[in-house]
Amino acid sequence: MEFLGQDRREGLGRKANSRFVLFLLIVVSVLLLLSSLYSAQASVFKKAREGVIDAASPVLELFSGPIAYFNDVTGSVSDYFNILEQNKALRQENAELRQWMDEALDLREVVAAYRGLQTYEAPPEAQPIDAYVIGEANDAFARSMIVNAGRTRNVESGQAVVDEKGLVGRIVDTGAHASRVLLLTDIQSRVPVYIEGADIEGILVGKTRDDPTISFTESSAPIELIPGQRVLTSGAGGVMPRGLPVGVVEGMVRDDIIVDLYTNYVRTRMVRIINYEFPAINADAADEPADSVDEPSPAEG
């Protein structure tokens, strides 16, 4: 190690590292930190984030393919040890799902009959945007993912993101070709939800641990919960559509209802961004709902 520690000054490192610049930059960092405390959504910072996501997305996309392969290889090692149990569980689940499929097919006929009625007016349909997860914050506190769809594909801030199991999060930053998804577990995440069958509306709050909680509930009466009840988005606030599956009630700790999410972030690879416009109900905008109702019908037919 005799050469370690010898300074050869050349090129970029021509000058010795100056203490003054170091101090100056520490001060700049602290100022940035303080200013982002007061204006986290300041347009300059937001623009910078979106620009960086956009610029980095080709690099992330390049590496995310091989990374996914290695994730699969390392992930499946544990699968080898409980493959029999998994097989058994899957058979059972498959049998149950077949029954559900029969029921769903019956219901489809009933719904089709109702739709045939003259008085039926179709609600606006959500326009799904499919995307791959190309980035993920490997950070202890910030929980977010980067997906490869942006403004050019009509992605906007606030839109809900789901995977094959349930709600993943919502869009917070949108670049031209990539966007950031704030996960439900992030400390900043707030999503309006309701508990099926319990008549409880609340806000799902991220806790950085694996399970977020419903902290605020509308009903003042004592809450009676059965673990296993479904938690769905309530659509309050008019951003996410109502009824997206989020998870199941796991239990209660003091006033917080712990929610076991359907989605497993470790396996989230393909997501669907839901571009949903709420039907306008105010009378003065009478033209707009007519448009939004008409629009989806060509896509249907």
Partner: peptide
């Protein structure tokens, strides 16, 4: 900027 944490 990339991980979405507070700047700085």
């Amino acid at each position: 900027l990339l991980t979405g944490g507070p700047l700085g």
